[in-house]
């Protein structure tokens, strides 16, 4: 393999991984915090994406559209959390799986009804659709943009979670929710705002990732397995783990498509399977489960 193709795989894998990270990080933290399996997380990404696609289709500035899309996804997430998801925390895994499965179903049906069954595109501005010269080859500016956004978001989240009071509370609640409550933290409120933030991030990922994961009504069911993989391979509740897992999934999947296309469609599942047999709690599990 030449150096050029190696670097291409690296960049493509990173771009894909960053999208997975942005969408999945909210799921990681909410699953770690409340141990609730949310198969509807993809639906929030999808809603954010659809809002942006429609607004940019009408000629709105991409960044403004993203702001609106994220707000919409976040509000919807908060609403769902406060109304339907809250009674779920005390129930078993299967009840959680099924209810959120039901939510995903409803979102599929609603979007098909309103916007039709076909994928709809997000209109990216010209400076993102072209090619950039990066020394050894020209490379799509869009993918570089994804990598950039992913890195910026990862840095912001790292600061938020590792360096602020909110982050300290969040980590404490993930590690031991009962103890956090006992020392007077309002864990439910913490969870609601985290859920809103996570859904808004998913909306961002859904919007800017539309070039790689096309927006269509079945989006939420189609990719939810990928998002879950990132969460569980990274370790539930582990922000750093989900970053590592998302990049790993992106790289393995991309490398597989380039190098062994026959095996590629199921390569990622084989890797995940072996990895979870080796480390059932994920790569970097938080203290509560390690």
């Amino acid at each position: 393999m030449s150096l050029v193709s190696f670097l291409t795989i690296l960049l493509d894998g990173l771009a894909f991984g960053m999208i997975l990270f942005i969408i999945s990080v909210g799921l990681t933290i909410t699953m770690g915090l409340m141990r609730v399996i949310n198969l509807a997380h993809g639906a929030f990404a999808m809603v954010g994406g659809y809002v942006v696609a429609i607004l940019t289709g009408d000629g709105m500035n991409l960044w403004l559209a993203i702001l609106i899309g994220c707000t919409a996804a976040g509000l919807l997430g908060g609403l769902a959390e406060m109304t339907i998801l809250r009674p779920l925390y005390r129930k078993g895994e299967m009840a959680q799986v099924l209810l959120t499965f039901g939510l995903a179903f409803v979102s599929i049906s609603a979007l098909t009804e309103i916007f039709g069954p076909n994928p709809i595109p997000v209109v990216f501005p010209d400076y993102m659709t072209g090619q950039l010269d990066i020394g050894f080859r020209t490379y799509p500016a869009y993918r570089l943009f994804l990598i950039g956004v992913g890195l910026v978001m990862a840095l912001c989240l790292w600061y938020l979670i590792d360096k602020t009071l909110y982050g300290a509370r969040l980590r404490a609640a993930v590690d031991n929710p009962n103890m956090a409550r006992a020392v007077g933290m309002n864990v439910s409120f913490l969870f609601t705002i985290t859920f809103v933030g996570g859904s808004a991030l998913a909306g961002l990922g859904g919007a800017i990732g539309a070039g790689i994961l096309p927006l269509e009504p079945f989006y939420s069911l189609k990719y939810v397995v990928l998002f879950l993989i990132v969460v569980i391979v990274g370790g539930e509740g582990s922000f750093k783990g989900s970053f590592a897992a998302a990049i790993a999934v992106g790289l393995v999947d991309t490398a597989g498509k380039f190098l062994i296309p026959d095996v590629a469609p199921y390569l990622i599942y084989i890797v995940v399977f072996l990895l979870l047999l080796w480390r059932p709690n994920g790569l970097l599990p938080p203290k509560s489960v390690a």
Binding site: I84, P87, L88, K91, A95, L98, L99, F101, G102, L103, A104, F105, V106, I108, S109, A110, T112, E113
Partner: peptide, 13 residues
């Protein structure tokens, strides 16, 4: 799909 989804949500709740 929506009908089935709503049925699911109601049953679980």
């Amino acid at each position: 799909e929506a009908i089935i989804g709503i049925m699911l949500i109601l049953v679980v709740l």
